[in-house]
């Protein structure tokens, strides 16, 4: 392997942009997925059965099919029903919808793990449904769902690599392109793998740190 520093310097702006795209799609994807997943979980728990059953079917379908198939359907099938998206918006939407299905299950389990006595007590003192969700369920759930949510965020970070297949210019796509131009495919892929590994380990550590910090707010004991 010829080590050419000029080459690496000349690639820097491109790499920085690709890194930005990876981070952006990840963060926006995770936040979108968490919000959408929360809404789905609330709708399934408190909405009418006419809403809950179709949502349940959607969650099952998304969880039962590969992310890549969903992306292809969105990106290549979308234009046929008037939904022409550029790669990045398509990737973001795909990631958010895919993640939302898993997040909704995490939140559903969270809702179920909140002791019914707390909700009954809140009903007795006359809190309405919105207040119960806002003041009882959400604070108690946050601790319960944190480990699974951190895990899901890490899964979604790894799924951003799949977005390269629909030509989102994120790190995997850009690095493989540079690697094949420079005939250093294996080396660049190896660096890419190390990069993801580091980021995943870092996020995992950050998640555990956050859990430890927040654990003093835990007042639901199993």
């Amino acid at each position: 392997m010829n080590f050419d520093t000029n080459l690496i310097v000349s690639m820097m702006p491109e790499l920085a942009r690709a890194f930005g795209v990876t981070l952006l799609t990840w963060l926006v994807g995770v936040i979108g997925a968490a919000i959408l997943g929360f809404l789905v979980a609330v709708a399934r728990r408190y909405g009418s059965p006419w809403l809950a059953y179709p949502l349940r079917l959607c969650v099952e379908v998304i969880r039962g099919t590969p992310f890549l198939i969903q992306l292809f359907l969105l990106y290549y099938g979308g234009p046929f029903i008037g939904l022409s998206l550029d790669p990045i918006p398509a990737g973001l939407l795909g990631l958010a919808v895919y993640g939302a299905a898993y997040f909704s299950e995490i939140f559903r389990a969270g809702f179920e793990a909140v002791p019914p006595g707390h909700v009954e007590a809140a009903e007795c003192v006359g809190l309405n449904r919105r207040q119960i969700i806002q003041r009882i369920l959400i604070p108690e759930m946050t601790m319960l769902v944190l480990p699974a949510s951190v895990n899901m965020a890490i899964v979604l970070l790894k799924e951003t690599a799949v977005l390269s297949i629909i030509t989102v210019p994120e790190l995997t796509l850009v690095i493989s392109a540079i690697g094949s131009q420079q005939y250093a495919f294996v080396e660049s892929l190896f660096l890419l793998a190390l990069f993801y590994w580091g980021l995943v380990e870092l996020s995992g550590r950050l998640g555990r740190h956050m859990e430890a910090r927040l654990s003093k707010y835990r007042f639901v004991t199993a």
Binding site: E159, A161, S164, T172, Y196, W197, E201
Partner: peptide, 8 residues
């Protein structure tokens, strides 16, 4: 577990 399967 830390590297995306696609990259692997």
């Amino acid at each position: 577990r830390g590297v995306p399967l696609l990259v692997q």
